[in-house]
């Protein structure tokens, strides 16, 4: 297991497989906490309303119930929600955060209880100052409760994929005519290289014209060096179009194309009949 400076916790399994977890920072966690506080306040208002109604029957019992429920809510909300939703409260769900075991193992009930009970110290003197400072100092962005419970809070950001259909639409891809070369290209291009090509296409309009030509020329030359397609397939294709075709091969699985081709073939047959 290792930590990088990008607030990422890397876990390497004994099988040699590595996966990384994005650690949540104090600001995101504070926002999630604010949402949860709002929920607790709303629930408290509801409890008071119910107690007010019950107060008609017995004011003493109603007040006792309200005190008990409020206390239960204050202590139990975090514990209950994190246990029920496997490490998430409403606030954490909204901000896509999740409590996890620090070693990537199964989260135990005792861990959830401890990290929630220790909020009393993390919350000192006000607004989670101690917890926030601990979070900033800690390598794993842990507050004191997390340290004691061996937990971390990770972020699962929604990765917004560029709209490939829009990006690559309406262009004939001559490279698709050679499935065996397409497969070879998929094998030889690394994830990093593919990401660079995709980003170059996404940001092409932000580039200076000269820089744009130079960048796509370099990328095209690199991909051509990896797999050599027949000359007739790449003849007359600009470097930018070549890179676009490569990205199309890498990011859009062939089966989508065959589906589209199938649909297109059917449509063509129907138009022929009419």
């Amino acid at each position: 297991m290792s930590l990088t400076k990008t607030s990422t916790l890397q876990i390497r399994t004994p099988e040699g497989i590595a996966f990384s977890l994005l650690l949540a920072g104090p600001v995101t966690r504070f926002l999630a906490w604010l949402v949860d506080v709002g929920i607790v306040i709303a629930a408290t208002v509801l409890i008071n309303s119910v107690a007010g109604i019950l107060g008609v029957l017995s004011p003493d019992f109603a007040q006792a119930l309200a005190v008990l429920l409020f206390f239960g809510l204050q202590i139990g909300y975090g514990i209950g929600a994190e246990w029920w939703w496997r490490g998430q409260t409403v606030g954490k769900r909204l901000l896509r955060l999740q409590v996890m075991d620090a070693a990537g193992l199964r989260l135990h009930f005792s861990q959830i209880v401890i990290r929630n009970l220790l909020r009393f110290v993390d919350g000192l003197p006000a607004f989670y100052l101690v917890g926030g400072l601990a979070c900033l100092i800690s390598k794993r962005a842990q507050r004191l409760g997390d340290l004691a419970a061996n937990t971390i809070v990770i972020r699962n950001p929604k990765v917004a994929q560029p709209d490939l259909d829009q990006l690559l639409a309406g262009k004939f891809n001559s490279l698709r005519e050679h499935p065996h070369l397409e497969a070879r290209l998929r094998q030889r291009v690394s994830p990093g290289e593919a990401a660079v090509a995709l980003q170059a296409l996404v940001r092409r309009d932000d580039l200076e014209p000269a820089a744009r030509v130079e960048l796509f020329a370099e990328l095209a030359a690199h991909f051509k060096s990896l797999v050599e397609f027949p000359a007739e397939s790449i003849e007359g294709i600009a470097d930018e179009q070549y890179v676009r075709n490569v990205v199309d091969l890498l990011f859009r699985p062939r089966r989508e194309k065959t589906d589209r081709e199938e649909a297109g073939r059917k449509e063509a047959q129907e138009t022929q009949k009419t």
Binding site: L105, R186, L249, P253
Partner: peptide, 20 residues
Amino acid sequence: FASEPDTRRYLEALVARAYG
């Protein structure tokens, strides 16, 4: 592999859960 980023992410999450 450069392609199939979604499959890779899915498999990563699956292996992480099973590892736990």
